[in-house]
Simulated scan of single mutants.
Amino acid sequence: MNNGTSNQWRKQVVWGLVLIVVGAVFLLDRMDFLNIHDMWQYWPLIIVFIGLTRMIASPTPGEFTGGLWMVFVGTWLFAVFDDRFDLTFRNSWPLLLIAGGLIMVIKPFLEKRALDKKGISHE
């Protein structure tokens, strides 16, 4: 299996599992074993999950850093909406600047590493 096929297979399995979980949650809600309304406060974790899947199946440094950004934003939103660590939109927005800067610093290193793996000179 080449790298592209492997990544496609991994993405398909992950999204298949997501559909199974979502279907099971809705079924449990319809059968009154679970109350979905109480779970909506966790919606930012969907962004975290999507970011993690992008990072795991990342064929390019850009997709990896995009996934990393999604994980950070989803975690930040969850912390703000759930009143974790006394974070609010007003006092925590600088975290977005810090995360953006970190991603800008990390991306060139990931690109250099990807070129080194391919044996391409980057000088």
Rank of each mutant, 00 (worst) to 15 (best):
H122M: 06
D32S: 11
L34G: 00
G62Y: 13
P44C: 05
P59C: 01
T60K: 05
F85S: 06
L19D: 01
W9N: 05
D82P: 07
G51K: 08
V71P: 14
M104S: 10
I56W: 02
L97E: 00
E111Y: 07
F72E: 00
G100F: 06
L96W: 00
N2K: 09
E123T: 13
S6Q: 12
V21D: 03
I106H: 03
W9M: 14
L77H: 01
D38A: 12
E111D: 05
D83C: 04
D38S: 12
I36K: 08
L28N: 11
F89S: 06
K117T: 15
M70D: 06
D83S: 13
A99P: 00
F78A: 13
L45W: 05
I106F: 07
M104Y: 04
T75F: 10
F49S: 11
W76K: 02
A24I: 06
R84N: 03
H122I: 06
G119L: 12
E123D: 13
F109G: 03
M31P: 00
P94N: 02
D82H: 08
D86T: 10
Q8E: 12
F109Y: 09
P59W: 01
K11I: 03
S121K: 11
M1W: 09
V14W: 15
E63K: 03
R113W: 04
G62E: 12
W9H: 04
Y42G: 00
V13Q: 06
G23H: 00
D29G: 12
